[in-house]
Simulated scan of single mutants.
Amino acid sequence: MRLRVEFTTEPFDLDEAPAHAVVAREVIEAADLDAVDVGPFGNTAEGGADAVLSALGDVLRRTLGAGATRISLQVNVVEEGER
């Protein structure tokens, strides 16, 4: 099964990326995922279910530890041929 995850961490800072946003980017870019898109207001990644769920666990633990006060996420099953 393939999954696509979209998530944001808060609070936002428009002047400088907060520590929790930097940590989220580092975790998601280091994970064994493909189709990674990291942006200022949200992040998207896709991959096998085990890789996505493992990365999400790391994102949640590490961003909360780095000062995130809210993490919003959506996980979708990616159908064959969909991208």
Rank of each mutant, 00 (worst) to 15 (best):
V75H: 01
A17I: 07
A31T: 04
A21F: 10
A19M: 12
G65S: 02
D15N: 15
D37H: 10
E46A: 11
V77C: 01
N43W: 00
R62A: 14
R83N: 08
A55S: 13
F41D: 00
A51R: 01
V75A: 02
R62S: 08
Q74N: 13
G81Y: 04
T8H: 08
L14R: 13
V36I: 15
L3I: 08
L56A: 02
L56F: 14
L33H: 12
V38G: 01
T8A: 14
A66H: 05
A31W: 06
L53V: 09
A24R: 04
R62Y: 02
L3S: 08
V23Y: 00
E10K: 08
G42H: 10
R62W: 00
N43E: 02
H20A: 07
L60S: 00
A45R: 05
G57R: 14
E6G: 05
A51I: 02
A68H: 03
P11E: 02
G67D: 07
T8F: 02
P18N: 12
L73R: 08
R83Q: 10
D58V: 03
L33Y: 05
D32G: 06
A51P: 00
A21T: 05
V27Y: 06
R25E: 12
A49D: 11
S54T: 15
I28S: 03
P18Q: 11
A45S: 09
L56Y: 01
E16S: 15
P40C: 01
V23Q: 03
R70A: 09
G42N: 03
A66R: 08
T8S: 15
G81A: 04
A68Y: 06
I71T: 13
R62D: 13
D37I: 04
L64M: 12
A30Y: 03
P18M: 11
T69C: 02
E80R: 15
V38H: 00
E80Y: 06
R2L: 15
T63N: 02
M1D: 06
G67T: 07
A17K: 12
F12M: 09
L33K: 07
V22A: 13
A68K: 04
A45G: 07
R70T: 06
F41V: 04
V36P: 03
V78F: 07
D13Q: 12
I28A: 09
A19K: 15
